[in-house]
């Protein structure tokens, strides 16, 4: 068993804050309330900070350490298709695609949600439709993300949810 530090404090706090705030806004809070807007601004600020950290941070938090790669994604899919196991530290190639997908979806949600509050776009229908589409897209993505994390944890025998709490990936030695 090898313990490797992969997620810094910022990444972990970002991840779980986003989980809490997104769940609150999507499922719990009244969509017409002021609280919904406040949480929306907080989410936008979080994602903005994550993007800065992705550029200026260190180690596996940097975007440079998980570039969107089609070849990498195909390699990981091949590993899944053939039942081979290779240890990925940091984000796996498919995981990286999911992160960019979620960051982008949340930016679209924030932006379209904000437009609905502005005078210039008040009364127009498309920001609302875009907002709802992006929310459904993000919700489906979150479900896929959770399913994929559970699947990969089982397949690679690295407990990924625990790594996002403790910051350490525990790689089984064989």
């Amino acid at each position: 068993m090898e313990k490797i530090k992969v997620w810094d404090l910022f990444v972990r706090v970002f991840h779980w804050s986003l989980v809490g705030l997104f769940t609150a806004n999507a499922l719990l809070v009244d969509h017409d309330s002021d609280l919904h807007l406040d949480i929306g601004y907080a989410i936008a600020a979080l994602v903005g900070a994550r993007i800065l950290w992705g550029i200026a941070g260190r180690g596996f938090a940097r975007f440079a350490s998980f570039p969107p790669s089609v070849a990498g994604a195909m390699e990981q899919l091949t590993e899944i298709a053939t039942g081979r196991r290779r240890v990925h530290l940091g984000h796996t190639p498919l995981g990286a695609w999911m992160i960019y997908n979620l960051l982008l979806a949340i930016l679209v949600i924030s932006l379209s949600g904000w437009l609905m509050t502005t005078d210039a776009f008040w009364g127009l229908e498309w920001p609302e439709h875009l907002h709802e589409f992006a929310v459904t897209w993000a919700e489906v993505s979150v479900v896929l993300h959770i399913a994929a994390v559970l699947f990969e944890s089982r397949r690679t025998r690295v407990n990924l949810p625990r790594a996002m709490v403790t910051g350490y990936k525990e790689i089984p030695s064989e």
């Binding site: 195909m74 899919l77 091949t78 899944i80 298709a81 053939t82």
Partner: peptide, 11 residues
């Protein structure tokens, strides 16, 4: 099907 294609390719 994509997984199948990739499996073939791997072999």
């Amino acid at each position: 099907y994509i997984l199948r294609l990739l499996r073939r390719e791997a072999h």
